[in-house]
Amino acid sequence: MKASNLPIVPASFFGMVLGLAGLGGAWRAAHLAWGLPALIGELVTSAAALVWLSVATLYGLKWLVAREAALTEAAHPVQCCFIGLAGVATMLVAAGVISYSHGLAVALYVVGAVFTAGFAVWRTGGLWRGERDPGHTTPVLYLPNVAGSFVAATVGAALGFPDLGQFFFGAGFFGWLAIESVLLHRLLTAPGMANALRPTLGIQLAPPVVGAVSLVAVAPQAPWVLAHGMIGYGILQALILLRLLPWILREPLAPSYWAFTFGVTALATAPIRLLLLGDDGAARFLAPVLFVFANLVVTIVAAGTLYRFWQHRGRASAAKPVSQPASSAPST
């Protein structure tokens, strides 16, 4: 296979898996809490698995036939962090197949967790060397350590390893607090983000609410005050992002906006999970509103992605030269 015939898939495309898997998880929780159709959750989860298989295959081939492009991405100060999503997406697929094959789920989880932990250590070690341009500090820094650790905790608990999940939760929780302070300092004191980087702010929503889902998974018996607080902080982040949306949308709707989807689906899932544990307070009112909001956001981003895909295909087809058979050439 020639590199010219292969779609060069960026690692950031794994973000589509996170958004779809997150929405599938929200629908599964909604089925248990409100009796909504189970089929929808299974279909969305299956779609996430298919996207994961496609992106993982193309990304793996990229290292074989377009190695220079893969190495350039890995050396990029911003894009490299998305590589960690390969392991996170694999663990989320593992969560999706637990009810169908526990053995396959464990195998996928181990592969995803080992890759995620290894990449997080490699990338964080590079960051500790310093000499970094503050303009390259964006919420993608959460991906290797924070997102990976929280997902490893949640899926580990679902597989029957809650104690292991608690260790992962700690890595993600304290990593989130540390990176949050660095990131807010950059946002408050450094020059504004370039247009192309602004959609990455959607990731800012994810840590508190993905962490809340993780906490409920690894310690369902714990007092709800911390989970409530993390959801509350997530709602604050969502409101700030809505206030900034006109500024962010100066960058046209593109696959980069999947950065919003994992956080927004976790924002919906966390209060539903609390309902399933018996929470009958404010979560009863927040959960349905946030669930509708998550479906709306993912639908808009997915529709925008499909539109851009067909638009790109149309341009590519129009750019191809059309050869005219000699027999049909006009006579002179």
Rank of each mutant, 00 (worst) to 15 (best):
A153L: 06
I179E: 00
A196F: 02
L143P: 03
L141K: 01
L183D: 06
P162L: 11
A157R: 05
T116I: 13
R132M: 13
L205V: 01
G118E: 11
L188V: 15
W122R: 11
D163P: 10
T137E: 07
V146F: 01
G148E: 01
R186F: 10
R198T: 04
T154M: 05
L188H: 14
P191V: 03
R129A: 13
L201H: 04
V155I: 08
R186A: 12
G165Y: 08
N195M: 05
L164G: 09
D163M: 14
F169E: 02
G130R: 09
F115K: 10
G125I: 13
L184S: 02
A196Y: 00
D133P: 11
A190S: 14
L184M: 11
D163A: 13
V155A: 04
E180M: 14
G126Y: 07
G202A: 03
E180T: 07
L187F: 15
N195P: 01
G125R: 12
V146S: 01
L141G: 06
V155N: 06
L187K: 03
V121T: 12
V140P: 01
L205G: 00
A147W: 02
F167Q: 02
G170N: 08
Q204T: 04
L184P: 03
A178I: 14
E131Y: 11
Y142N: 05
V155S: 06
G165S: 10
T124P: 05
D133K: 09
V114I: 15
A196V: 00
T154A: 10
G170M: 08
V151Q: 03
Q204S: 09
D163S: 13
M193K: 00
R129Q: 14
H185F: 14
T154R: 04
A178F: 11
P144C: 08
P191M: 08
G130M: 12
F161K: 06
G118K: 11
P134A: 04
A153Y: 10
T189C: 15
L197M: 06
L201Q: 06
S181L: 14
W176R: 02
T124K: 02
S181N: 05
G170H: 05
T138G: 01
L159T: 09
P199C: 10
R129M: 09
Y142F: 15
F173M: 05
G160Y: 12
